[in-house]
Design a protein around this nucleic acid. Structure first.
Lengths: 250, 250
DNA sequence: CGTATAATTGATAGAAATCAAGTATCGTGG
DNA sequence: CCACGATACTTGATTTCTATCAATTATACG
C-alpha cells in the first residue's frame, strides 16, 4: 500500500475495480471508459479514517484496501454491516436518506476515487445500460445484506462466522483469481465481532475452535480456507451465484 | 379485503401505492401513467402464499395487504427480513442473484400487480428519471435493512422491538395520513419474533412489558403508539428522514 | 362444537456478554 | 539495539439474556 499513486497513474487499480463490475455483464470498451472517467482523482486515506459520512455529496469507488459499512448505535457500540473490497462503490445507501446511518470506515489504508452524485444522475440519462448495471450491483449487495440479516436473526455465532469467511473468500476471488483459498484478511477479532454481532472474546474462542477443527488456518492476517465444505455445512448456506439477466437495455 | 377487484377497477389501490413512491420526488402526470401501465392486471393471493420466489421472472407491486421478505435457513428456522406495505415493489433483490434467498410471503391476503422484468429494462432506456427513482427507493430499503442489521447485531431484543414499531408506524403513515398513531398491525407474535430475531415466547413477555409500561396498546391486531418518545429512547434511534436529491435526470 | 392456531405463563437450559488479568506483538523514539 | 506504550490477542470465572420445554387458556374457523 505504499505505492498507490504511481501505480494508479497506469490505471492498474481502476481496471481491477471495474473488472469486478463487468463480470456481471459484458461491458464494451467505451462503457469501461465512461465508468473510468466518472471517478475523479484518486486519493489515499489511512486505516481508521471515515471514508464516507452522511453529509458527503459524493460517492467513492474503492480501488485498493478494505473498508466497511459502519453503524454507530446510541448505546455506544458499533456494528459493521458489510465489508467493502476493491470495486465496491461506497455511499450508495445514503443517497436516499438523511439519517446518519451507513458511514464507511477504512479498515486498512485505502485508495479511493470520489464520484460526484451529479455524475450518477448524468449516467442514468446518458447510459441506461450502465445505470441498470449499477442498479443490479446494488441489488446484489442488498441480497447479501438480507442474508446476513437472516443469519444474525436465526443462526448461532458459529454459523455466522463460517458464513463470513465463505462470502469473504467468494468476493475476494472476484478480484484475484490466483490462490483463492488463501488470502489477506486484515480484520481484527474485534472487527469480526462487530461484523457477526458477538464480542471479541467470543470470536477468539470460535477461531480457536475453527483452527483445531481443521476448518481454517489464520495467522499474520492471512486466512486459508482448509475445509470449504465443512464451513458451508456449519454456515448452512450455499455458494453464491450471480444471475446474468437478459433484460438490460442496449 | 373482499372487494379488491372491483375497487381496483377504479385504480384506487394503484394510486395509493404510487403515491407512496412519488412522495420521494415529484412525479409528473405522464410519469405516474407510465408507472401505472407497467403493472399488469392485479391478482389476489391468500395469507401464507408465496408471492415471489427466486424462479419468478416478474416483480410485483403490492397494492393492498401486508407481505414480508422471508429467508429460510437450513436449520429449519425462518427469518422475516422486511415488512412490505402497499407501494412496495417485491422481488427486486433477486434480480441479481440466482440463490433462493429472499422469497416474499403474504402476511395477510394481498392484492398485487405483476411487473415483467423486461418492463424494468425498458424503463431504464425510456425514462431515466423513473429509473433513478426506483434506484433511490431501493437504496432507502437497503438503508432500512442496514439499520435492522445493526440493531440485530448490537442492540437487545427490547430495543429491536421498539424500533420495529417505530419504523412500522412511519412507513404506515406514508399511506394513510389519518390517525397515524393507531393502525392495523396484523403480525402475529411468532412473526414479530421472526422479524426481530427472538422466540415468540420472548416476544410475548416484551409485549406485556411494553403494555404495562404504557408504551403501546395492542389488541385485535390494532396497534396504538402511546409513548412515541419512550419507544424512540428504548430503541435508540431517530425518526427517519428521506432525502430529496436534486441530481435526478429530467 | 371440535379442531387448529394463537397467546400466555412458569421452570429450566444454553448461548454469549462482561469482567478481570495476563500475554503477545508491533511501531516508535531514545 | 532496547525500552516503551499501544494495540491486539488469549484465557478463565461469573452474569445476563434469550431459547426451549411444558402446560394452560383464549380465539378463530368450518
Amino acid at each position: 500500500m505504499t505505492d498507490h499513486a504511481s501505480h494508479d497513474a497506469h490505471g492498474t487499480y481502476r481496471r481491477r475495480a471495474i473488472s469486478r463490475l463487468s463480470n456481471f455483464v459484458k461491458l464494451g470498451e467505451q462503457e469501461v471508459a465512461q465508468l473510468t472517467s466518472m471517478a475523479g482523482n484518486h486519493c489515499v486515506m489511512a486505516k481508521g479514517d471515515i471514508v464516507h459520512a452522511q453529509s458527503s455529496d459524493c460517492l467513492y469507488l474503492l480501488l485498493d484496501g478494505w473498508a466497511a459499512g459502519a453503524v454507530m448505535l446510541e448505546n455506544g457500540s458499533r456494528h459493521l454491516t458489510m465489508v467493502c473490497l476493491p470495486g465496491d462503490i461506497l455511499g450508495l445507501p445514503s443517497l436516499a436518506v438523511r439519517n446518519p446511518i451507513d458511514t464507511v470506515v477504512a479498515l486498512t489504508d485505502v485508495l479511493v476515487c470520489p464520484i460526484p452524485v451529479e455524475a450518477i444522475g448524468a449516467m442514468f440519462a446518458s447510459n441506461p445500460r450502465l445505470a441498470a448495471l449499477m442498479f443490479l450491483v446494488s441489488q446484489e449487495e442488498r441480497s447479501l445484506a438480507i442474508e446476513r440479516l437472516a443469519m444474525l436473526g436465526q443462526a448461532d455465532a458459529r454459523s455466522r462466522l463460517a458464513a463470513l469467511f465463505i462470502r469473504l473468500r467468494e468476493r475476494h476471488s472476484q478480484l484475484d483469481k490466483v490462490g483463492p483459498l488463501t488470502f489477506l484478511m486484515p480484520l481484527t477479532q474485534r472487527e469480526i465481532g462487530e461484523l457477526i454481532g458477538v464480542s471479541a472474546v467470543y470470536v477468539n474462542g470460535l477461531l480457536k475452535e475453527f483452527r483445531t477443527s481443521g476448518l481454517i488456518k489464520l495467522q499474520d492476517r492471512s486466512l486459508e480456507i482448509v475445509d470449504h465444505r465443512g464451513l458451508l455445512d456449519i454456515a448452512g448456506i450455499a455458494p453464491w451465484h450471480r444471475s446474468h439477466p437478459g433484460w438490460l437495455p442496449d
